[in-house]
């Protein structure tokens, strides 16, 4: 498969089977995808259609049973250990469905943690944390520990954490699933704004109509296969 300069994610015949004892459960069955830079894409489909598995494989959290994934032209599905950790840390931000903040770190420490792993100097870390907390509407709440934040606030911290290291790609697994519609809409607006301002690429898995309404492109998965790929707004790069 040929990679174009603007191709951020390329998957080739991606398959993932889960094994439970002797039973093989296919989760992804031969997915070929190209996601270009700056896209704001929603991955939709019923439960069990393979959305989360596909996101996990694209992010390098999981490995495919067959097929390959390139991210920025690098074969992420073939990376292992520290190389994979570093690549993921530097190029991918992940927003999980259930907030997933580190419970013993405050909001600002959760955001700062990834930059610490990247070796960003302390002063710069502090400055970037301060700015991004403002961007996600959490000024003055940096010192709060996760249990002292509402679900929406925690998800904002998770988004800020995913973006602060300035990755090219943000993967979000049902980011609005546990939020009320108002909070969900506000977060989507933040992400949309960041996509437009910074050029970060967003790929969501979702059931949420609000996400679909805001997406430039909707990829529908069914039984682990791409059933439909609808481009709703033209990406200037495409």
């Amino acid at each position: 498969m040929t990679n174009h300069a603007s191709d951020l994610i390329v998957t080739e015949n991606l398959r993932k089977d889960y094994r439970e004892d002797d039973i093989v459960v296919p989760a992804v069955r031969g997915v070929d995808l190209v996601i270009k830079e700056r896209e704001f894409t929603a991955l939709v489909g019923p439960s069990g259609s393979g959305k989360t598995t596909l996101l996990n494989i694209i992010s390098g959290l999981d490995s495919p049973t067959e097929g390959r994934v390139w991210l920025k032209g690098k074969p992420i599905s073939e990376m292992k250990g520290a190389e994979l950790s570093d690549f993921r840390r530097d190029h991918i931000g992940f927003v999980f469905q259930a907030y997933n903040l580190i419970p013993v770190l405050s909001a600002e420490e959760n955001i700062e943690y990834i930059m610490m792993l990247q070796g960003v100097p302390k002063n710069e870390r502090r400055e970037r944390v301060r700015k991004i907390l403002g961007d996600v509407g959490l000024q003055g709440m940096g010192r709060r520990m996760p249990p002292k934040l509402s679900g929406g606030q925690q998800q904002r911290v998770a988004i800020a954490r995913a973006m602060v290291s300035r990755p090219g790609l943000i993967l979000a697994d049902e980011p609005t699933a546990n939020l009320d519609s108002e909070t969900g809409a506000a977060l989507l607006d933040i992400m949309r704004e960041l996509n437009e301002k910074t050029g970060m690429t967003f790929l969501f898995s979702t059931h949420d109509r609000m996400v679909m309404d805001r997406a430039d492109r909707i990829i529908t998965l069914k039984d682990g296969r791409v059933a439909r790929d609808e481009i709703r707004a033209e990406n200037p790069i495409r």
């Binding site: 950790s85 570093d86 999980f96 580190i102 792993l117 954490r161």
Partner: peptide
Amino acid sequence: LLKAVGTKPRH
């Protein structure tokens, strides 16, 4: 989670 956000196994 720590590994998902890029923490190395040794860390």
